[in-house]
């Protein structure tokens, strides 16, 4: 039992060490803007524009469900205009960022792990190195930057879509007027609400892309290795989203 724990600890420590080296190589590649600059726009389009439909789709239904759920919960006890408050706060601060990020672990993180993993096992990464390129500068930095920059953009649109469908559900399916919904929305609103959501989204983008790239470049063993890297990227990214979600809540929401 002790030897098993020892072996697992050693493996975990070795993994942390390798991830630390990966981060160090990535940080060292950041000044090489001439290399990553020419592929950044492509990655921003792939991560941002191409991910928008799935994010908006999820947010649209989340907004509807939230409005109905709030009404169901509040009926008879709490004024109904607070539906707007709940929809707004929840979408901007929690469900908008978290659901968007969870959806994009597959769309973005797994895609990166599979793409870079395939490049690794088919020696394309080695070929890049022999042509005097740093794979970190050409492959990792533009993806991580694009994720960090574009996740808040996608999440921002998702929040807006959720608010829109929440409002539509309130005025069409519920006994609530537009003015009442907006009154609730404004009542406890602070700019920090959406800023908090965007900060979280940016950190989710950073870690999802880092995990996807790390696991992709660390792939060994052909198609099976690519499959393992892809699955791991989804699992680790989803876990990291929940950890970061709690982290930001503790750091930024805890009463002084």
């Amino acid at each position: 039992m002790l030897s098993f724990i020892g072996r697992r600890s050693n493996l975990a420590l070795a993994g942390i060490g390798r991830f630390g080296l990966f981060l160090s190589d990535t940080a060292r590649a950041v000044p090489d803007a001439r290399t990553w600059g020419r592929v950044l726009a492509v990655q921003m389009r792939r991560i941002g524009v191409d991910s928008l439909p799935i994010s908006l789709f999820i947010a649209a239904f989340t907004g509807i469900v939230l409005a109905l759920l709030a009404t169901y919960t509040f009926t008879g006890a709490v004024p109904l205009y607070l539906v707007g408050t709940l929809v707004g706060k929840t979408l901007m601060m929690e469900l908008g960022p978290v659901l968007t990020a969870l959806a994009l672990t597959g769309r973005v993180g797994a895609t990166m792990a599979a793409e870079l993993g395939t490049m690794r096992v088919t020696e394309q990464v080695d070929a890049m190195e022999t042509l005097a390129y740093s794979p970190h500068a050409y492959l990792v930095v533009p993806r991580v930057l694009a994720g960090t920059l574009m996740f808040p953009v996608i999440g921002g649109f998702a929040m807006a879509m959720g608010l829109l469908t929440g409002w539509l559900a309130a005025v069409t399916l519920l006994p609530l007027s537009s003015a009442e919904f907006l009154r609730g929305l404004r009542m406890f609103y602070q700019p920090f609400d959406w800023q908090y959501g965007l900060i979280k989204l940016s950190s989710f983008g950073l870690f999802i892309t880092l995990i996807g790239c790390y696991l992709g470049l660390a792939t060994r063993g052909g198609a099976e290795g690519v499959g393992i890297a892809t699955t791991r990227s989804v699992v680790y990214s989803a876990a990291m989203i929940l950890v970061l979600d709690a982290y930001w809540a503790i750091v930024l929401l805890r009463p002084a």
């Binding site: 490049m119 088919t122 020696e123 394309q124 080695d126 070929a127 890049m128 190195e129 022999t130 042509l131 005097a132």
Partner: peptide, 15 residues
């Protein structure tokens, strides 16, 4: 590396 050309077994072209 810029002075060395490397031809890979399976070509390793960027697909």
């Amino acid at each position: 590396r810029s002075r060395i050309g490397f031809v890979f077994q399976f070509a390793a072209l960027f697909d």
